[in-house]
């Protein structure tokens, strides 16, 4: 589903990604772990199409399509979803309007009929209940005045509504207490299907207790230095990244 080959990228002339090779098959849940500054967030932004990153080499295909040639909205419409590490506040943009505009943009792309305000509310309420989100979060500005946990839940709500085929979760666990963490994990697990894949980016092993990955990759210095099964995450938790560094 997602195939990254020899990907290199720079920010302001400084190399951050130094040749990433990674393949996530349909239905696969892969985790990427690594210390701060290893390039985890850069990788997620490059995949989602944020400006300010210069791709200097390599390729990324999504279902065989050249992902890097697409605009951010086209990537989203093709089924890619980035759950932001720091969800952006949009004062003056109502959360309900935002969610419905996004959902209808994606539905249009898929050739599905758009939802009117009533139809949307019905769908949104169901999803919000599952995430234990109070309904007034629909009426507020997008992420404005939301606590850290509420922002992350709002990300998962967007994911649940947009039904992506590939979700990239960029440190979605950071700033969450254990109850919120479980809710978020349940939100992701609910999407698990043979044609749903996820790339779970995290600093800690904690989230991977709840979203159990098929594969774990260790990113250091802009390269994947080690890959293994779920047990690799536990090993890292016990011995730290320094041991990997030494081994690499």
């Amino acid at each position: 589903m997602l195939k990254i080959e020899g990907l290199t990228a720079e920010v302001d002339g400084k190399p951050i990604l130094n040749g990433i090779d990674l393949e996530v098959p349909a239905g696969g849940i892969h985790a990427i772990m690594g210390p701060n500054g290893s390039g985890k967030s850069t990788l997620s932004y490059v995949l989602a199409g944020r400006e300010g990153y210069e791709i200097t080499g390599g390729s990324v295909t999504f279902d065989g399509i050249d992902l890097l040639a697409l605009e951010p909205e086209e990537r989203a419409a093709s089924g890619l979803f980035l759950a932001f590490q720091y969800p952006v506040e949009l004062p003056g943009v109502g959360n309900a309007l935002f969610l419905r505009t996004a959902l209808n943009a994606i539905r249009r792309h898929r050739g599905e009929p758009e939802l009117d305000a009533m139809q949307f509310l019905k769908v949104a309420r169901q999803r919000m209940q599952a995430l234990s989100m109070p309904e007034d979060m629909l009426r507020r500005g997008v992420n404005v005045g939301f606590s850290g946990g509420e922002k992350k839940r709002n990300e998962v709500l967007q994911m649940a509504l947009l039904q992506p085929r590939l979700a990239i979760l960029d440190e979605t666990d950071s700033g969450l207490d254990i109850d919120a963490l479980k809710i978020v994990a349940e939100g992701v697990n609910a999407l698990r299907a043979p044609d749903f894949s996820a790339l779970v980016i995290t600093h800690y092993q904690r989230l991977l207790d709840y979203i159990v990955p098929d594969r774990v990759h260790v990113l250091m210095g802009g390269r994947i230095v080690q890959s293994g099964g779920p047990e690799l995450a536990q090993q890292l938790e016990a011995s730290g990244y320094a041991s990997v560094q030494a081994a690499a």
Binding site: E73, A76, L82, V93, F98, A102, L162
Partner: peptide
């Protein structure tokens, strides 16, 4: 970028902002 990353085309995203 946040709006576009949710599938909202750029002109629409700009008008929303």
């Amino acid at each position: 970028f946040y709006l576009r990353a949710r599938g909202i085309p750029e002109p629409k995203a700009r008008s929303m902002l």
